[in-house]
Design a protein around this nucleic acid. Structure first.
Length: 306
DNA sequence: AGCGGTCAAGTTGAT
DNA sequence: ATCAACTTGACCGCT
């Protein structure tokens, strides 16, 4: 069984070939409707997304994919200033929650890990208070769904530098105090490809007890004084549970014009040798989605890496 | 039914 | 100054 092996692979959010699709809508559409009609529409989307999530988890369990990242719009427009809503105010709100909790039971029964990755608009260290407020609201929403489905990771980036990284990271640490326990206990931070390297983030991780999601592709694009081996070891030490790492390959090779962009598939050469034999969850960030995860899994198996 | 323009949000860096 | 990039195409109004 693949779930017994030490390297476990994760799929990010969507499928290329499988007929599993998540629904969404637009502010323009919801705003144009009467409130009751809008809430009915949103409820339908939430119910459909809970079903799509269960289908996603079933595919992962059936194909030896051990982790699934849940997209940020799983409850569409949940935190929008005008269109936002409490789930229990939706028609079928109780049923929506019940279906997400059923996803959590399925994941637990099949040893599947789940996680969230709030997108670039979540910036805990912004100097703009309204940006921080919206970011906290988004984290609290994703943490609520994470609790229903048993996701143990809500992963974000360090945010902006604003010309002074230490100052910006100090603001990040201050903002953590405003999070609920359920958001704070799931929060992780990831090195990015333009601003924060593993070296930048590790002191924050250590002082605040936040695990570092080590993205080796970002690290290769945005280097610091640490080798891949050193960053790997340091990142692992920040985790009180199975570490989660990210892996991707450059779209046109490392000598191409934009190596930070992701390829459809993973070049197995980009899989760090030093990860071999470690107990890790590796989220595969590749545009071919489940097809790429399964291809990498096969290649790693052939090489005896898993 | 099919087509094409549009889509909540932040920040950085390339052009 | 504009815009692409970031985990990803999907939605919706028009014909």
């Amino acid at each position: 069984m693949t779930n017994d092996s030490s390297i476990r692979l994760g799929l990010c959010c969507i499928f290329r070939d499988q007929p599993i699709r998540f629904r969404n809508t637009t502010v323009k559409s919801i705003s144009s409707m009467e409130r009751d009609a809008a809430l009915s529409k949103l409820a339908g989307l939430c119910l459909a997304n809970a079903e799509a999530l269960l289908a996603s988890l079933e595919f992962c369990a059936d194909n030896g994919i051990s982790c699934f990242r849940i997209n940020s719009q799983i409850l569409p427009l949940k935190t929008h200033a005008d269109c936002g809503y409490d789930v229990l105010d939706l028609p079928d709100g109780v049923e929506i929650v019940r279906r997400f909790k059923a996803c959590g039971e399925y994941a637990r029964d099949h040893a599947l890990r789940t996680c969230f990755h709030p997108d670039q608009f979540v910036v805990l260290n912004s100097p703009r208070p309204e940006v921080v407020d919206r970011s906290i609201a988004e984290l609290e929403y994703q943490a609520e769904v994470a609790e229903w489905v048993g996701a143990d990771v809500v992963n974000i980036h360090g945010g902006g530098a604003y010309g002074d990284k230490p100052d910006a990271l100090a603001r990040f640490a201050q903002t953590l105090k405003r999070l609920s326990d359920r958001a704070r206990n799931r929060l992780t931070v990831e090195n990015d490809d333009t601003t924060y390297t593993p070296s930048d983030l590790l002191p924050l991780c250590q002082s605040e007890g936040i695990p570092l999601v080590y993205d080796v592709h970002h690290h290769r694009c945005n280097q610091d004084d640490l080798s891949v081996e050193e960053a790997t070891a340091a990142a692992i030490s920040t985790w009180n549970r199975r570490p989660m790492f990210h892996l991707s390959s450059p779209i046109e090779g490392w000598k191409g014009p934009k190596p930070q962009r992701h390829h459809d598939f993973i070049d197995v050469q980009d899989f760090p040798d030093c990860w071999r034999g470690l107990s890790l969850t590796i989220e595969v960030e590749a545009k071919a989605k489940e097809v790429a995860v399964l291809r990498l899994k096969k290649q790693l198996t052939e090489r005896g890496f898993v």
